[in-house]
Write a protein that binds this DNA or RNA. Structure first.
Lengths: 147, 147
DNA sequence: TAATACTACTTGTATTATGCAAGTGCTTAT
DNA sequence: ATAAGCACTTGCATAATACAAGTAGTATTA
């Protein structure tokens, strides 16, 4: 991987955002953190999309460099590292939720992504539309509770 | 380019969305349609991001195949084609707006993306938060008025 | 305490996607 | 009739990704 591109602060907002997380794998990782509560390198490898180790490493590095996630050593097991969302990263949840809402509307046979929102799969769409703030709070609160 | 991957209807909503528009160039094109009012192949080539013709052609084809955009011949000039958003495509505006909102918050020196929203650059953030529905309507209404 | 396994990576190579320059075919203006 | 505009396509060099294997530090097991 080459040196992570320094954020171009002179581009338009969309281009700025795309330069940071506008690729498939970064968003898959963010999904796993938000909706699946994942924190470890090995957990990200388990996703059905099958990200490879070098790409995962490069994306984690880039998102850490962009202050979207933080990396800390696991005090319970020093060979593991914990990846968490920063505030800047948590603020990306609306983007992900809009994608979910759009997909639920247009994908004929959607699987449920929000595994972390237990017991509320069928009314997800309703909550996305009418209880957005509450839903966002629920996800953020449940995220790091080792579901 | 290889045959556009058939939409996998069994994936999670995020993966479904990413499979359709989850790459830099598709979203740049959508930005140009939503915020710059672009409609022609040649107009998309003019963006500062400098998309190349083969990539532009492949993305337009894919988004057309996914019913995000439609392609019609320009009756005023038969050598030109007009690309417009379908309803499915217009429903992606919230995703783009969330990206703008996030970028405006975290990019120290943002350029203004919403060229189409004239006379309201400084209170964009306010509108994004408090008048979202009105803003969405404004953008969609102004989009195809050859600004 | 030595050997095995776990965890987070890195490295090398084949494959795929992208960037760039040039060309093609149809339409329109001169 | 000729040239210019427009939307592509094609060929090739370069860059990104996928896949398999290897490495180094920590933890577990015998």
């Amino acid at each position: 991987m080459r040196k992570p591109e320094v954020t171009n602060s002179n581009t338009c907002p969309i281009a700025y955002a795309l330069g940071i997380f506008g690729d498939k794998w970064s968003l898959i990782i963010l999904r796993d953190i938000f909706f699946k509560g994942k924190m470890y390198f090995g957990e990200f490898l388990d996703s059905p999309e099958k990200i490879s180790t070098n790409i995962l490493a490069s994306r984690l590095l880039k998102m850490e460099a962009e202050s979207i996630i933080s990396k800390t050593q696991d005090t319970q097991n020093l060979s593991k590292y914990i990846y968490r969302l920063t505030h800047k990263g948590k603020d990306l949840l609306p983007v992900l939720l809009d994608m979910v809402e759009w997909s639920v509307k247009y994908n004929p046979q959607p699987g449920i992504s929000s595994d972390i929102i237990k017991g509320a799969p069928e009314n997800l769409l309703t909550r996305l539309r009418k209880e957005r703030e509450i839903l966002i709070n629920d996800i953020l609160v449940n995220m790091n509770k080792n579901v």
